[in-house]
Write a protein that binds this DNA or RNA. Structure first.
Length: 935
RNA sequence: GCGGGUAUGCCGGAGUGGUCAAACGGGCUGGAUUAAGGCUCCAGUAGCUUAGUGCUUGCGAAGGUUCGAUCCCUUCUACCCGCACCA
């Protein structure tokens, strides 16, 4: 039963490595496929089950594509620079470099044990100077293009550490090392990358990517595009731009609020209010970070007034704690009547509230056309106001919301009178859009429905209008004979010439009016911020900059790269790099006089933003990579990695790719065309695996127990790979049993002849497995493979069937299949064998039906046997009476049936005169369902 | 608050306009094997009914579209995830 998986797995690990089976070479004649797993952070604890899962998914895909004949690049590397390594190293008291080396060696051992088919010759390690040299080179290129710059910014700072912290090091507003120390926000000079330059493109290109919808949405939210207007308000003689998404509420502005962190705050504060403002600012500064979110809206009057760009009214300028300095211009126009936050503020400080949009009272408008059976009086009784009545008898009406139901009833009643019959066949549509948003079609002509739907859909997509506008527009274009306009956004009031407009329309009109007077324009804002890349940490890429008293910020010349991380530093307080004076003191590359190196290093995400390109040409010491090679392999065709990277790594990688394309180094603009996020492997208790919960299962431990093949098989046979699942010892045992059974079967395998049924099953399986594997539905693919196996388990099969089966199983269980493959007499590796082709001609629906009929029959017989048993009778013989034309079908499976039942089975055609049928059961036979007699 | 997702047996999960809801696995029950346990094998696992082929219930809840819906539409509920004082 059991097999020596340790021996087999060791043997093939070695052979694959020796023969360099998985090393990739450019070949313009062959279609490439770039399959990539997000490279791991080599921690000292080694691989965890999550790694095992995600890399197995990648390996399966790489093997699958390789066998399908693609020229597959499947590389691996280590994202070795970063905070955790530095801290772990400090904890154990060794140098981060040593720590990292050890971790990587440990990782490699385990990765090989898992049977992952990496091209080890392309391995990269971001902590080597050969790699980070190019991080520095890219930094210089960004500087040239103005994409890397230095500015003052608010950052997290821990007093006790005396250093700036990464966001990851801030836990609940406190330093992760000192949970009694609040993180302070300090304004410090930092290096940034101008990711915002690409905000629009980053957003737009998402549409064409084959990524999970969730990932795309998250990125869209992160980039956070909002369209609105920038409106100029004059404050104390100077014009300030203010961003709003609701220019339609411009007439409702009753005050402005300036961020307490606004750089020009002092300009707004009048002498009289100075003290109040100072007190207020003090109070804000003393509030703790974690409390900020729960804070009430608070503010103080600045003493200044702004001038409304259209009405020229005087509007008080306040200072508020809820306005972000970094978003928009740091000043907001407050419309308390139509914004919850502004309303709170206005109520608190008794500021005026001016309604400019009639929402509650806005009636529902309807265009009632061809309503010949409806009288004016019917409508008036329902408090429906007739705005207009045309010659043709059409109504333009306003219905109070309270009477909507009655109106609906009226229309329905009139229609029951045959109201709409006369319109049948004339492409007339009756559509109601109710308050709830529900759309009810009373009658439609098929062609029209499609046309109108498409029209409405397209229209909404193209325009920035909301639904109500679309419906109104449609009504005006007479596509609908009856239409209720649902006023989601209300109608403008108290807004001079804009009164009566739908708010969506008003946005455009008002912006146009502002543009004409040069008081504003249409703009687009993004939430995406520039990327802060400076870190006051040792284990990162040194920023290639020298500060010179005379020349200022001087980039290190390209020829002097890399700026190496000095080995001799003291860990402990502050930035370790600052402790090596020898390294810091350097001649200014420009003037040759005294200069000092930048001691900040780059964020670890810098290293991972372009690594996928380095794999294309990993040993190049002249260039970052050969453009030709990069263009051959990249972009990544299949990228696999956890969802936690969606808003950081994947944004950065996309940004880098666009930048590199603009440099002319590559000809594509997206790093990964397809992206898959795997689920989480939880402990058997359904909780996340963690040491403290004691539910951790280590891959290596499992490999020792069941072998890598069984672990791999188990990991993917659970559910769809993008879902979380709980570890189960029982089920991995099950996978192990299967692997063992396959080994046993092939231990004594002798090729024979396959019959048409086996051929049918095989080809069907080939077809299904390929499509499942392509979609990461490995659970289903595995089921099909197992079904095939149990189907031929006790049958004679030919060599081709056996080999096809092994090939399909190979992507899941690479080791055993190599072993069996060799035992069958193959000289080449199964790893590079050709994926089986499906012969459609051999798929026969008849067999499937037959199989079902036989199974049904067995089920029926079992049922009878059960009942008999309950009656304390015993059964020895089974007689089956099928319709004459079906006799062959069942008799062919007679062996199978009697084996299943473990009883003697005889079959007769119902018209067989010599049949044994003492109870005349044969008369019960039906097509596909033979009669049964049990004795 | 905004956005996205999910909802199927005891559990993990298939299926998706009809001809089959629950494939496959786990659990549980019974049986075979065994000294016993494990492994393995066989059968059963919504209800009723009958020596099987029948009927009913049923895919979170309620409506709707359809000749027909677990699947499409609307609303609601629950859970998960992401973002969030973003103007």
């Amino acid at each position: 039963m059991s097999y020596d998986f340790k021996k087999i797995e060791n043997k093939w690990q070695k052979r694959w490595e020796e023969k360099k089976v998985f090393s990739a070479k450019e070949n313009p004649k062959k279609k490439k496929f770039y399959c990539l797993d997000m490279f791991p952070y080599p921690s000292g604890t080694g691989l965890h089950m999550g790694h095992a899962f995600v890399f197995t998914l990648g390996d399966i895909f790489a093997r699958f594509k390789r066998m399908q004949g693609f020229n597959v690049l499947y590389p691996i590397g280590y994202d070795a620079l970063g905070l955790p390594a530095e801290n772990a190293a400090i904890k154990v008291g060794i140098h981060p470099e040593e720590y990292t080396k050890k971790s990587i060696a440990n990782f490699m051992k385990q990765q090989k044990a898992m049977g992952w088919s990496y091209d080890w010759s392309r391995m990269i390690n971001t902590s080597t100077q050969e790699y980070y040299k190019w991080d520095q080179w890219l930094f210089l290129q960004m500087m040239k293009k103005g994409l890397a710059y230095r500015k003052k910014a608010p950052v997290n700072f821990c007093k006790k550490c005396d250093t700036v912290l990464a966001n990851e090091q801030v836990v609940n507003g406190k330093c992760w090392r000192h949970d009694d120390t609040e993180v302070e926000i300090k304004n410090l000079e930092q290096w940034f990358f101008k990711t915002t330059n690409y905000a629009g493109e980053l957003l737009k290109c998402l549409d064409n990517l084959d990524w999970p919808e969730r990932a795309k949405t998250m990125q869209r939210n992160w980039i956070g595009k909002s369209e609105g207007a920038e409106i100029l308000f004059e404050i104390e003689g100077k014009k300030y731009p203010i961003f709003t998404t609701r220019p339609d509420t411009l007439f409702g502005v009753t005050f402005l609020v300036v961020s307490a962190q606004h750089s020009e705050l002092a300009n707004f504060v009048k002498q009289k209010q100075k003290k109040d403002v100072e007190n207020f600012l003090k109070k804000i500064k003393s509030t703790k970070r974690e409390e900020v979110e729960k804070l009430d809206k608070e503010g103080v009057f600045s003493g200044s007034f702004a001038i409304h760009p259209l009405t020229k009214e005087k509007i008080p300028v306040w200072i508020g704690n809820f306005v972000l300095a970094e978003y928009g211009s740091g000043i907001v126009m407050a419309v308390p009547a139509h914004d919850q936050r502004d309303l709170e503020f206005a109520k608190k400080y008794k500021l005026p509230i001016k309604q400019v949009i009639r929402k509650e009272k806005a009636p529902v408008r309807s265009y009632l056309m061809g309503a010949s059976k409806i009288k004016d009086s019917d409508l008036i009784n329902l408090e429906i106001k007739i705005i207009e009545k045309t010659k043709d008898g059409d109504f333009k009406i306003e219905i109070p919301k309270t009477r909507l139901k009655d109106y609906e009833k009226l229309i329905t009643e009139k229609m029951d009178d045959g109201f709409w019959n006369e319109y049948l066949g004339e492409e007339i549509v009756f559509i109601f859009k109710f308050n709830s948003g529900k759309i009810k079609r009373l009658i439609l002509n098929d062609d029209t429905e499609e046309e109108v739907d498409k029209l409405a859909h397209d229209f909404m997509k193209e325009s920035k209008w909301n639904k109500s506008c679309v419906w109104k527009w449609l009504a005006e274009n007479s596509f609908y004979t009856d239409l209720i306009v649902h006023t989601d956004f209300g109608i403008l009031v108290n807004s001079d010439e804009f009164n009566g407009l739908f708010s969506e329309e008003a946005k455009e009109h008002i912006v146009k009016a502002l543009e004409a007077k040069k008081f504003g324009r249409k703009v687009t804002q993004y939430k995406l911020r520039d990327w802060l890349v400076s870190r006051q940490r040792y284990w990162g890429t040194p920023i290639p900059i020298v500060y010179c008293d005379k020349c200022g910020i001087v980039p290190v010349p390209e020829k002097d790269l890399p700026v190496k991380l000095p080995n001799n530093v003291k860990f402990g307080k502050g930035n370790p790099l600052a402790t090596n004076e020898k390294w810091i003191n350097v001649k200014c590359p420009r003037c040759g006089k005294f200069g000092r190196r930048e001691t900040d290093t780059m964020d670890t995400f810098v290293n991972s933003s372009w690594y996928y390109l380095r794999y294309a040409d990993p040993r190049n010491d002249k260039k970052i990579f050969e453009t030709k090679k990069a263009n051959y392999w990249a972009p990544v065709d299949m990228y696999i990695g956890g969802p936690e990277h969606i808003t950081a790594h994947l944004i950065y990688a996309r940004f880098y790719t666009k930048f590199l394309a603009d440099l002319g180094l590559i000809k594509f603009r997206e790093p990964a065309l397809r992206y898959f996020t795997q689920g989480l492997v939880r402990g058997s208790d359904g909780e996340k695996m963690s040491k403290s919960k004691g539910n951790v299962v280590e891959p290596l431990e499992t490999i020792n127990k069941f072998g890598a093949d069984s672990l791999r098989l188990y990991l993917v046979s659970n559910s769809s790979s993008d879902r979380d699942f709980d570890w189960s010892e029982k089920e991995i045992q099950n996978s192990f049993n299967f692997t063992s059974k396959v080994c046993d079967y092939f231990a004594n395998f002798k090729a024979g002849k396959s019959d048409a049924r086996v051929d049918n099953k095989l080809n069907r399986t080939i077809k299904e497995v390929a499509s499942y594997a392509e979609d990461f539905a490995h659970n289903l693919a595995v089921i099909k493979i197992r079904n095939l196996f149990s189907y031929f388990y006790d049958k004679e099969i030919d060599k081709k069937t056996a080999e096809s089966f092994l090939k399909m199983l190979h992507i899941y269980c690479p080791f055993v299949t190599e072993e069996i493959w060799e035992n069958l007499g193959n000289k080449e590796f199964i790893s590079i064998a050709e994926w089986p082709k499906c012969d459609e001609k051999k798929i026969n629906e008849k067999f499937e039906k037959e199989e079902k009929a036989v199974e049904q029959l067995v089920g029926d017989i079992n049922n009878i046997l059960k009942i008999i048993k309950e009656k304390q009778k015993s059964a020895k013989k089974i007689f089956i009476y099928s319709l004459p034309n079906e006799k062959e079908m069942f008799s062919e499976n007679l062996d199978f049936i009697s084996k299943k039942l473990n009883l003697n089975v005889k079959i007769f055609a119902v018209n067989d005169k010599n049949k044994y049928d003492p109870e005349k059961k044969s008369s019960k036979a039906k097509p596909g369902k033979p009669a049964i007699y049990v004795e």
